[in-house]
Design a protein around this nucleic acid. Structure first.
Lengths: 137, 137
DNA sequence: ATACTACCTGGAGTTCACTCAAAGTCAAGA
DNA sequence: TCTTGACTTTGAGTGAACTCCAGGTAGTAT
């Protein structure tokens, strides 16, 4: 599979894919005799994993370290397991932050929707624990 | 409340707080006669909101635009409402990406935990739809 | 054989969100 | 009053993650 096909499949630019390979977010990709990248299913699996974790905000370093350990072979299995658990903690923290932001956001939107109807913003902070006191008008 | 107290309350550096004010993520903060920032409850409300949304990955521009509209007064209420809905969509997308990454991560960890016990990595891709074919060893 | 397009590399440039430094001011304690 | 330490501004510097560019090669269509 060409780089272009992989790009359109995952919504990543060719520059980004080459960058990922260069810094080690994914292992070296298979090439044609002429030196052009020809992604195997295995390569694509790595790209999908990298794209998934990156889109969730996982830092590059962590993915690079994982690939480094992977290349070292089965002696690093437990190290990789620890790394993944650390990565999971990171993701759970991100998810929690999203949740909190969404809670706050939903409250703000509900107040604004009422205001769009009535023309008056009516914050009711104490009741919801949402710190919107700064926005009384 | 001094800048230091606000910082320790939200885990933000003084530089970051001043930066937020400078670029307009939060409105101008109240000052003492000597020109030193003295955060009111209202100011703190803005900081909390900014910190919450920023930690969830909301871009600075969006928050700046919201504050800009807020300062323009009640004529921008419906515009602000639209902006918040757009922001919510952004957060929901983030949350979804976290969820997908966690699903993949949990599968990988489960495989690795088994491998740490047995010493053998045993991917079972077809069964879970998880693209881990790149990591068979 | 000749275009033409997509790919290659190495390295420089960009964007975002801070973060730091320099030089000066404010405020409390000895 | 002097010192000390926290605050102020302006502007430059940093790190992460791309993104672009120049100059060259691969592969296909005519």
């Amino acid at each position: 599979m060409t780089i272009k096909e992989v790009c359109s499949r995952f919504g990543i630019s060719p520059d980004t894919l080459r960058y990922y390979e260069r810094v080690g977010v994914i292992p070296e990709v298979h090439r044609t005799a002429g030196g052009i990248r020809d992604y195997t299913e295995e390569d694509i699996g790595w790209v999908e994993t990298a794209a998934c974790f990156r889109s969730a905000g996982m830092p590059i370093d962590l993915l690079v370290e994982y690939v480094r350990l992977y290349k070292e072979g089965s002696s690093t299995i437990s190290a990789r397991c620890e790394l993944l658990k650390q990565a999971r903690a990171h993701l759970l923290a991100e998810q929690q932050k999203c949740k909190e932001a969404l809670k706050k956001m939903n409250y703000k939107i509900s107040v604004y929707e009422k205001a769009v109807e009535t023309g008056v913003l009516d914050w009711n902070n104490g009741a919801c624990g949402c710190p919107c006191s700064a926005e009384q008008e």
